[in-house]
Design a binder for these strands. Structure first.
Lengths: 203, 203
DNA sequence: CGGCGCATCGTACTCAAGGACAGTATCCGG
DNA sequence: CCGGATACTGTCCTTGAGTACGATGCGCCG
């Protein structure tokens, strides 16, 4: 297997020496600045402390990400920064002073085209989706509601007028209002807008 | 480095032979059933097609996960199953017939205490949080709105009454209505509920 | 059987929302 | 200097939403 070129992008000589320790398996190239990333490179380990590092929202990241697989290394990793890095197009996020074994593993994974994020971030991601993949199975808001009330609430929460709901369910507008009154009371809200926010998980 | 024991849990002999190919680096042990997982094992590759596999919600998973690092291997991987597996306590999720190199990588990562999920699931996770962390950064809905209109729209979308918004912004309720009228017109909606759905990314 | 929950429908009332029509003041760029 | 955008305010009016105070019919369970 031919050695792949790995760009070590850091301004910190000490860190650079440390990173050079993971020498086997890679053709190492040093870059002192973000601007100095070699054009043809395909894999880079990027120090969060680089002086000229652009903000994650800067288009430079989007420009690089399609061709360059970037691992963002922070000396003080934290979840928000990690998420931002991944969102910016980085393929990995880890501790800058991690062990050579760990860094190698991260780089191997990323070089293989996968993404790497740590336990902590993954756990946070899972928690985030959990709360939005679970609802469809068990609509938490519909706890004490009856079947009919749920139908009406669902439609009201999507912005349908009472008259439309009545027509759709083949009942009177009066009945729709009746159901909604029950729904409001049971869910402890005052109007259909509050209901909508509740149903859709806002507030 | 002492070889770690890896349990290959599958009922499928063909798959078992295939998995035995990743022999180096592990002490391989075969298990034919979920019930037959060795008590002291610390790492297991589990076939999704196991006949006696309990549902992910079954307590058996929670009982195993603290001591046993499980990689769930499906012959037809899909995101929902992957998410369920991770939520059930598995440390990894991958394709059952993936290459030996790929499986080794997954197992190494998991053995190191990290979690492994594929690009696809990770991307889905990112999208899920993106939509709840990004909005503050780039409110797409506020395209043609003026600064003041945005403030009013934001509050209205959270269910505040016109009078409350007026009080909060130290203006007249009439002015709030005026701004909202502009907002409705610009966003092509009819009332504050539609506005709320738009602002919060529903519809 | 009698109570209870659920779904349905009626009339009447109050009120916030939103639109119609209009006016004043500021600031900025051609 | 004037047109245009923005912010702010006013009055009048219509309408939908929500509530109050009812009523009827049905199925279920003790």
């Amino acid at each position: 297997m031919k050695k792949q070129t790995l760009v070590l992008a850091t301004h910190d000589d000490q860190l650079a020496r440390r990173w050079h320790a993971l020498g086997e398996g890679w053709t190492l190239v040093r870059a002192n600045r973000f601007d100095a990333l070699p054009a043809g490179a395909t894999l880079a380990l990027i120090d969060a402390a680089l002086p000229d590092l652009p903000a994650f929202t800067h288009p430079a990241w989007a420009k690089l990400s399609p061709t360059l697989r970037m691992v963002f290394a922070s000396s003080q990793p934290n979840d928000p920064e990690g998420l931002a890095a991944i969102n910016a197009g980085c393929s990995g996020y880890c501790h800058a002073f991690a062990s050579a074994e760990h860094l190698s593993q991260v780089l191997n994974v990323v070089a293989a085209g996968e993404l790497w994020v740590g336990r902590s971030i993954l756990a946070r991601l899972l928690r985030a989706v959990e709360s939005r993949t679970a609802p469809p199975a068990a609509p938490a808001w519909a706890g004490p509601l009856t079947e009919r009330e749920r139908e009406v609430a669902q439609r009201a929460a999507l912005g349908e007028a009472n008259a439309d709901i009545a027509a759709a369910l083949a009942i009177t507008e009066r009945t729709v209002k009746s159901h909604l009154t029950s729904v409001f009371e049971k869910l402890g809200v005052n109007d259909r807008l509050q209901l909508a926010l509740r149903v859709h998980g806002i507030k």
